[in-house]
Design a binder for these strands. Sequence first.
DNA 1: ACGTGTCATGATAGCGCTATCTTTTTATCG
DNA 2: CGATAAAAAGATAGCGCTATCATGACACGT
Lengths: 354, 354
Amino acid sequence: MNEQRARRRQSGRPTVNDVARLADCSPMTVSRVINGGTGVREETRLAVEAAIRELNYAPNRAARSLAGASQLRIALLYSNPSAAYLSELLIGCMDAASRLDAHLVVERCDPDRDQARMIAKLAENAIDGFLLPPPLCDDTALLARLRRAGTHAMLIGPGQAQAQHGVVMIDDYQAAYDMTRHILDLGHRRIGFIIGNPHQSASALRLAGFRDAMSEAGVPVDEALVKQGQFTYRSGLDAAMELLALADRPTAIFASNDDMAAGCVAAAHRNDLDVPKDLTVCGFDDTALASTIWPELTTIRQPIRQMAETALDLLVQDIRARRQGDARGPRHATLDYQLVRRDSDAPPPASAAG
Amino acid sequence: MNEQRARRRQSGRPTVNDVARLADCSPMTVSRVINGGTGVREETRLAVEAAIRELNYAPNRAARSLAGASQLRIALLYSNPSAAYLSELLIGCMDAASRLDAHLVVERCDPDRDQARMIAKLAENAIDGFLLPPPLCDDTALLARLRRAGTHAMLIGPGQAQAQHGVVMIDDYQAAYDMTRHILDLGHRRIGFIIGNPHQSASALRLAGFRDAMSEAGVPVDEALVKQGQFTYRSGLDAAMELLALADRPTAIFASNDDMAAGCVAAAHRNDLDVPKDLTVCGFDDTALASTIWPELTTIRQPIRQMAETALDLLVQDIRARRQGDARGPRHATLDYQLVRRDSDAPPPASAAG
DNA sequence: ACGTGTCATGATAGCGCTATCTTTTTATCG
DNA sequence: CGATAAAAAGATAGCGCTATCATGACACGT
C-alpha cells in the first residue's frame, strides 16, 4: 500500500501534512497560515512558518487551484510582433498569471486570418478573458466581436479609453507634452514631428500633446514640419528625409515611436548631420531598438511589464467579481511613464539657436 | 448538498463525468481517449470525441497534473535581454510547458548579481530543471555550478556541445558556411567578416564556417577584412567604418549577427554607399531588427521557438527518465536553420566585379 | 454556577482527474 | 461449443489542498 502511494507521489516534495506533523497541528492550520493566516494564534503561526522553512515546503499549485476551483484561463492575443514589447508583456503576464494562479494562453492573432472563428471558439468555453495589447486593442471590429460575445477583455495601452472593456494605459498625451517640453527646454524652436500610424488612436494623442506643449510655450507649429508616418522605420526615414531637405530645416525631430526615430537618425547621417550635435531626435516607447542603435535614443518608457501585470490583475478581479454577481464593470488604470534621457538630444547648434 | 457542491465548483465547465454521461461510458474511458486512447474501441472513441466536442470540454490542468503527480518546475534563466530572441523563446517555452504540463518559472539572472545564491536556492527544492539560452549557455562557471548541484539543465544554442548537459542547437558552422557560399555565388570576392563576441563560442564557429567556405571556393581571406566585433550595433558600425575606409574596400560584409549588420548598413550610408547596390550586407539570427531596418537584411534564421520547444521536451523527458532510474544521460538535438534572403544583398557593382 | 458568544483549531469531504486493479466483453482456438 | 487469452470498460482510491462545518477552549455577563 505504502509503496503504491510512494510511486504515485510527486518527487518526495513535502506536503501540508508533513508540515502539519512537524508543527504539531492540523493541515488546515497550515493552509490558513499559508493563505494570509487570519484566525491563527501568533505562536502557532510561528511554529508553522518554522516548519515550512525547515522542510523547504512550497505549496502545490495544481492542488491549490483544484481545491479552490479558481483556475481562470486568460488568453493573451498578439498580432504585431514588436518583439521587445512582446517579451516584456509576456514576462509581466507570466508573473501575474503565476501569482494569481491563472492559466495563460498565448495566441497569435492576425486580423486577416480567421480571427473571428478563433475568438468565437475561445470565447465559447475555454477562455475566461482576453488581454489585448496594441495594435489589437485598437481593432474596433475585434472589440465589438468580443463585446457581443460577452467576454471579459482588458486592453493594454490603447489610445483611448473604452467603456465596454477594461483598460490599462499611460497618458500618451501628457507624455508627448512632456517630451516636447523637454525639447523646448533644450532651446529648440524649429521642431519637427512625425505622426504615428493613423489607425492607432495613440497617434492622435501624441500629436495633441506636441501641439499643446508648443502653443503653451508660445511657439507656433510650422505645419511643414509635421509629417505623417506609419510607425515603421522606413516611414520615419522618408519623413525625416523630407524634413531635412527643407530650406529652413528643423533642429529637432520628435518621432511618435522609436522605429521612426531610428529612421530619423539614419536620415540625418545620410545628410551628413551629427546626432545630437546637428539634430536632436527623440522617440517614444523605449523599445530595444532605442538602446540598440547609436546614438541611443532619448525616449518615453512605458512600464510595459507593470502594465501587463496590472492588466492581468484587474482582469482576474473583474472576472471573479462578475462571477459573484458583482457587476462593477470593467476596471481602468493609468500608469506612470518615464522620460528616458540618452544621447540623441542636445541644445540646437549655435548657428540655429535663438 | 448539491448547492454546496455547485458553489465550490468551477464556472460550470464540463468535467470528465459530464462527458462520460453523454458518451454513455465511464470517466476512465474518457480519460483514456484524451490521453492517447490506447485500448479503446474505435466506436467508443468516436462517441467520446463527439461528446467532448458537443460539450466543448477541456480537461482541467490542475486536476490532471495533481492526479498524475507530474508537475515539473522548469526555470528559464535569461540574462541578455535581446528582446526578439527572448520573446520567441518565451512563446516556445510556454507552448511546450503547457503541452507537457510543466510549470515554467522565468527568472532574470545576471552573471554578477548573486547568481550562485539564486541557483542554489532554486535547485535546492523548487526547480526540477533549467533552460539556459545564450549567453548563459556559455557561462562555464554557471554550468559547472549546476553540474555540481546535480541539476538537470538544457542549453539552447550554445556554441559547443556539452557532455554534462543537454543541448539544442543549430549548426552555426554550416550556417555561416552557407551564407558565405551565398555571397560568393553572387559574385563577390572581397568579403569582409565581423566576428562576434569572443566569449560566446558560436562566434568562433561562424568564423570557421566563413573561412572554410572561402578557402574551398579558392578565394584567399584577406585578414585586413576580418574585424573583431562584440555583437553590438556600435561594434558593427565601428568595424564597418574601418572596412569601408580601406583603399581596396570590400564589396560585401558578413556580420556575425543582425545588430552588427545593422551597424554596417548605417556605416555604408554614412559613406554614401547604397545597400545593396554598392555594398552587400548579411547578418545572422533573423531578429526583429533584421526586418525593421531598411533595407531588410538577408540573414540566417534560427528556429528559436522550435528550439525552445525541443529543449523543454527533451529536458522533461530527461528528468522523467532519470526519475525512473533510466540514466540515459542528457539529450542533444540539432535543428535546421534557414537562409532568409531579403533586400540587403546583390551582385557586386560592375566596377568591382570579376 | 450557567448560558452565550468569540476565537483557534480539527474533522470531513470533496475539487477533476488518472493509476491501478477488477470485472466484463470479445476474439481465438482445440 | 466451452475454454482461454486478450482487449475493453468500470470501480476504487487517492493526488495535495482548501471550504465548510463541528468542536473545544476560554472570557464574559448575570
